[in-house]
Amino acid sequence: MKILVAVKRVVDFNVKVRVKADQSGVDLANVKMSMNPFDEIAIEEAVRLKEAGIATEVVVISAGPTQCQETLRTALAIGADRAILAETDAELQPLAVAKILKAVCEKEQPQLLIMGKQAIDDDSNQTGQMAAALLGWPQATFASKLTVANGEATVIREVDGGLETIALTLPAVVTTDLRLNEPRYATLPNIMKAKKKPLDVQPVAAMGIDVAPRLKTLKVTEPPKRSGGIKVADVAALVAKLKNEAKVI
């Protein structure tokens, strides 16, 4: 069974992003970029399925500029077998990425497409569901446990009231939540090995897919700041403030 894992290159989760003064976006100059943390969980899960003898090959894909090769090398160092870069300098929105993934799935014929439930930059939480819809595949979002057997993926999902278990007929799309696994650190020998693994660059322009953005960002602004409050000396002072000043209890 082949697994395709989609990964996105995003601003590192430790970076405190700043809005540009001209409100055109956030400042990405000289900012550390990393793999979207949810996608790291997706790679880890695929590699574990391979180590368990369930998957035979783990292919990783990213869509974006040439720098995404770094992200793909990270995935290869975690244990993916080969990588595909759908290369473009154009802005890609979730629907466009889903269309690219559909085209790649039709060619690669994986039984599972796994990715993070959302990217921590645009917080969209759409691409997996959209790819599933376009492919006509079933989906399980927000996965906290994944078991594959007998042509089915059984997934425990994190939902608002607790947990839900559903079974999907393969091929299927799974998007990962935080508690699915704890991704390993890539070891130095594996990072060296990853450099020699195949990485196939395919220009998006040659795929014949309409990736034009549908959403136009008119401006990006700072959220309203909370004015810093005060420190109270003790519990009695806190209760007095809540009762008399804030009047919330």
């Binding site: 979730p94 969209s124 691409t127 997996g128 819809a133 979002t141």
Partner: peptide, 23 residues
């Protein structure tokens, strides 16, 4: 934007070939 809304709406948008606006 509940677990259910986030699960279903992108699927709807893709079937309609439109972008989805999250949150």
């Amino acid at each position: 934007s509940t677990a259910h809304g986030k699960n279903v709406m992108p699927r709807v948008a893709a079937k309609l070939d439109v972008a989805q606006l999250t949150d």
